[in-house]
Design a binder for these strands. Structure first.
Lengths: 203, 203
DNA sequence: TAAAAATACTTAACAATGTTAAGTTTGTCA
DNA sequence: TGACAAACTTAACATTGTTAAGTATTTTTA
């Protein structure tokens, strides 16, 4: 049995070699910079070898997306340590934006790019991404219980809050923020604060 | 002089022929479907002729983006007729989302795609897009004056509200909304209402 | 242990793409 | 009419994703 086990290991190792090279190229210069031939050159195999491990280029990006989600989820869930739900809520939002701004490639892969989505046949395959969303819903529920947020449909509230942070993140990443450089970060933080604060029951 | 005027006219006509064909291909099947050769075939000229009117493919998309902004602005400003500022505010938001959902290609071109932005050297060139943004700021100012919105930095408020509607729109357009089909529209409307309502001074 | 079979990989080629260089046709004006 | 410029085309280039066919290498079988 050990021999087929080793083969299994080798296969996974090769897959990772391909994925890591692809990710490196992608993060360095974006989607167009990832060509099968460049990956091949990097790993010192012929281009066609890659097709023995991945059906096509889209499948590579689909897998890179999953990797990005792993990173992302890990980062998001760090805020779970925070006891106070209100403080946790704000930290969650800040962490989200911070991740997006500091890892624009990952964020693009997860929430903006078309390529990895084509490969995605059913919502179940997006499960990697659902973990953070469930975490958000859980937090919202808690904030409604302590009356910090008004009682509303949780699905609506969760989607709203996701939209709100995603809006900020994707305007930054796709370079639609034409504000003076030094003002930009201030504006991002300001918007996050403004929006998150608005949501609470004021009295 | 009339002869060079006619030439000028012909040139513009040809440019429009190219642009309209490109737009048609783009709206029908997206960016990848727009190839120089396909445009050429559609207008019954050789592919290289296109390069006599546009520097490269990016320049075509940059121009398509401007066209999209024209359409978009026109639609947005229709809400200016509405007298009541609060009603106008909500209508503006709804119009924004409606435009995005009904014209995903245009929206993508304006606010999501990378391609047209590469060509864009200075913010001034984005002026087409700024018109609606100024309109938004004007409306916000009015809502602060009548104390419907709390007094805050107008730049922060405008960017926040833009982010919020853009978030909804871009999640829909880039297919990150994995909710049952029939529930989707309800959720979009719900989120818009929830977020817009949250913004006001509750008392 | 030698032949057969499966596995891992490569070479060569395909069609499609954006783009350029060089040429040809057409129109304009002296 | 003949020179010149404008409008357009042909042919080619390099780059891309992908496939078909082949060659080594390793494993299995007899």
């Amino acid at each position: 049995m050990s021999i087929s086990e080793r083969k299994q290991r080798d296969k996974i190792e090769m897959e990772n070699l391909i994925l890591n090279s692809a990710m490196e190229l992608f993060l360095k210069e974006g989607y167009d910079n990832v060509t099968i031939r460049k990956i091949a050159e990097k790993i010192e195999y012929s281009p066609t070898t890659i097709y023995l491990y991945f059906k096509d280029k889209d499948e590579i990006f689909f897998t890179l997306q999953k990797m990005a989600f792993k990173e992302f989820n890990k980062e998001q869930l760090k805020t779970a340590e925070i006891k106070d739900p209100i403080e946790r809520f704000f930290a969650h939002g800040k962490t989200y934006i911070k991740f997006a701004v500091e890892n624009p490639g990952y964020y693009d892969l997860m929430f903006i790019m078309n390529e990895p989505v084509r490969n995605l046949k059913s919502p179940e395959e997006w499960q990697d991404g659902m973990s953070s969303y469930d975490y958000l819903k859980q937090n919202i529920k808690e904030l409604m219980e302590i009356k910090y947020l008004p009682e509303t449909d949780i699905e609506v509230a969760a989607f709203s809050i996701w939209s709100l942070v995603h809006g900020i993140a994707s305007l930054v990443i796709r370079r639609r923020m034409f504000f003076p450089e030094e003002y930009r970060n201030q504006l991002i933080d300001g918007a996050l604060m403004y929006l998150f604060s608005s949501l609470s029951n004021k009295n």
